[in-house]
């Protein structure tokens, strides 16, 4: 058994760091120092190779829509909205919303870029079509 605790097992864990980063407007991913692959959502061990040797890196924010849907609502509950799966340029896939265009106009394969804003009260990583202000 290893005698030393890996650095990543000490201090605030990956969940806490993720939420702190997003709260501060930063979209960061874990990248494994052993296999070189990035992963999301936050975890203590690399989901690809199991290593505890990883570091936080800034995400490029670039992504592609892998799949998309429109959640239909009764008018009194609010407008219809988009739910999409985004393939990040770094490799991981995440659920999010593509905003700024009507939900049905979000298409699979569309290039998107990340921004951070509150959805209800807590900030989340959201996406808009690439190249839009």
């Amino acid at each position: 058994m290893a005698s030393e605790r890996a650095a990543n097992f000490q201090g605030p864990g990956p969940d806490a760091v993720w939420f702190e980063n997003v709260k501060n407007g930063k979209f960061r991913l874990q990248r494994c120092n052993h296999c070189g692959k990035a992963f999301f959502y936050p975890r203590p061990l690399c989901v690809h190779c199991g290593s505890a040797d990883w570091a936080w890196v800034d995400a490029s924010g670039k992504g592609t829509v892998y799949s998309t849907s429109v959640v239909r609502q009764r008018p009194e509950d609010g407008p219809d909205y988009n739910i999409a799966l985004i393939d990040l340029a770094e490799g991981p896939r995440m659920m999010s919303r593509v905003t700024g265009i009507p939900a049905p106009e979000v298409k699979i394969g569309m290039a998107v870029e990340a921004y951070i804003a509150p959805l209800d009260k807590d900030p989340l990583v959201l996406f808009k079509p690439a190249g839009r202000a």
């Binding site: 998309t68 849907s69 959640v71 959805l119 209800d120």
Partner: peptide, 24 residues
């Protein structure tokens, strides 16, 4: 869940995403 904060209408939403991808 890191999906839940986006308020997907589950479980329908997950299957709808699979259908959309299969259709595409």
């Amino acid at each position: 869940s890191f999906d839940a904060p986006y308020r997907p209408r589950q479980p329908i939403n997950s299957y709808a995403l699979a259908a959309a991808r299969h259709m595409h």
